[in-house]
Computed example of a mutant assay.
Amino acid sequence: MGEGPARPRVRRDARAAAVSSHQPRKRFGQHFLTDDVVLEAIVDAIDPRPGQALVEIGPGLGAMTVPLLQRCERLTVVELDRDLAARLRRNPQLQVIESDVLKVDFRALAQQAGQRLRVVGNLPYNISTPILFHLLLAVDDVVDQHFMLQKEVVDRMAAAPGSKDYGRLSVMLQWRYAIENVLDVPPEAFDPPPRVDSAVVRMQPLPAPEGVDAQVLSELVTVAFSQRRKMLRNTLGRWMEERGVQAAFDLQRRAEEVPVAEYLALARLASPR
């Protein structure tokens, strides 16, 4: 019992030394998580287990990597920074993929692992949305996802119809994921501190709705939100006419008033049979 309080302090000292020896690179959007209480809460939310196929995006200096490994024993990490990748390779428990995450084939990783993936990470805020859409391509090969993101983005991801945050991102993620904000994180938990608040989001895949073509859904949702202040008759109405889609769909609304289920129903009618 007497040794309990000492362990976090040792981790914190080692982490501080690592941060001080590596200059964060702005082009990679690097902000290193250094708060032990926050780290423990994140790992508890993930609840990794031995034998699971975990993939961490952007492990950086390994702040979350080490406590994850203590529970899951092996981990695949995706790191673009070659200096950080070289550090990570020193750990025999890690499979290091030195790459831009947008070039990683997560479906192939699942096939290699022989099971669906659990994906985690402190995502670079400057490219978080492209990463989320890239992972959407592999949604059927994923158990769940836990990401640190800009809180504003998490609010948009989880937004309900009628709110100011509800938009294209909300619809295009909620049609395949149950989304939950599990933890708010202040700027001072990072080194260097970002200029925005952060949050940890949990994304659990949902079964693909039958008869919905993803490309058709993406197209109609993009059209619907292209002019948010206008009624849908001016945007989506024209799109439906051009495609010859006839549906009992109320066009006397704005895009943010339409629930995901209604967008799916319209996409089903417009999808090739």
Rank of each mutant, 00 (worst) to 15 (best):
P5R: 13
A16F: 13
A18L: 15
P24S: 10
P24F: 12
K26N: 11
R27Y: 14
H31A: 09
H31W: 10
D35M: 00
D36M: 09
V37F: 03
L39A: 13
A41R: 15
I46K: 04
D47G: 13
P48E: 10
P50M: 11
A53N: 13
L54K: 06
L54R: 07
V55E: 03
L61E: 12
A63S: 15
M64Y: 01
T65A: 08
L68M: 15
L69I: 07
E73L: 07
V78Q: 11
V78L: 10
D81E: 14
R82D: 14
A86V: 03
L88S: 10
L88Q: 08
R90F: 00
Q95G: 02
V96K: 09
I97F: 01
D100S: 06
L102D: 08
K103D: 15
K103E: 15
V104I: 12
Q111L: 11
L117I: 14
R118S: 08
L123K: 07
T129P: 00
L132H: 01
V143R: 11
D144L: 06
D144P: 09
H146Q: 05
F147T: 08
M148P: 06
K151S: 14
E152R: 08
V154Q: 02
P161F: 05
R168M: 14
R168P: 13
R168G: 09
S170H: 07
S170E: 08
R176L: 04
R176M: 03
L183M: 02
A189T: 03
P192H: 02
P194Y: 00
D197S: 10
D197K: 10
D197W: 01
S198Y: 07
A199D: 01
M203A: 10
M203E: 05
P207C: 09
E210K: 01
V221R: 00
V223W: 00
V223N: 00
A224G: 08
S226K: 05
Q227W: 05
R228T: 05
R233M: 09
N234L: 07
N234T: 09
L236W: 06
R238Q: 12
M240N: 12
E242Y: 02
F249M: 05
E256V: 03
E256D: 15
E257W: 02
L264V: 07
A265E: 11
A265P: 04
L269F: 06
A270G: 06
P272G: 02
